[in-house]
């Protein structure tokens, strides 16, 4: 349900109707920024938003994204360490 895709606001189309130009991987589309605007629309330029059916529905929180990726990275390292230990234990068993 609800296909949404991150895009970056690259221009303002119509301040009055709160329409901006968003870009997703080289594809451009006018989107409504009513849901994410607070203040003059220029401040949105460069912002990443989640786009659904022609509306920017949410601003993407860069810090939260980084935190999630960091957690994933740590988890990966911990898992590698665990696996190395398991491999070590198996090798020991094999020798015994």
């Amino acid at each position: 349900m609800c296909l949404g895709i991150p895009g970056q606001i690259v221009g303002i189309v119509d301040e009055d109707r709160q329409m901006a130009m968003a870009e997703v991987s080289g594809v451009r589309r006018e989107v409504s920024v009513v849901c994410v605007a607070d203040g003059p629309l220029e401040t949105l330029i460069g912002t990443w938003v989640l786009i659904h059916v022609g509306f920017a529905m949410s601003r993407i929180d860069e810090d939260e994204a980084a935190r999630t990726l960091e957690a994933l990275r740590e988890l990966g390292e911990a898992q590698e360490a665990l696996e190395a230990m398991a491999a070590g234990a198996a090798a020991l068993e094999g020798r015994a």
């Binding site: 296909l3 895709i5 997703v24 991987s25 080289g26 594809v27 589309r29 786009i51």
Partner: peptide
């Protein structure tokens, strides 16, 4: 795949 084709497909 070109970036634009990926973008169009995701949208």
């Amino acid at each position: 795949l070109r970036a634009e084709v990926r973008g169009m497909c995701e949208i």
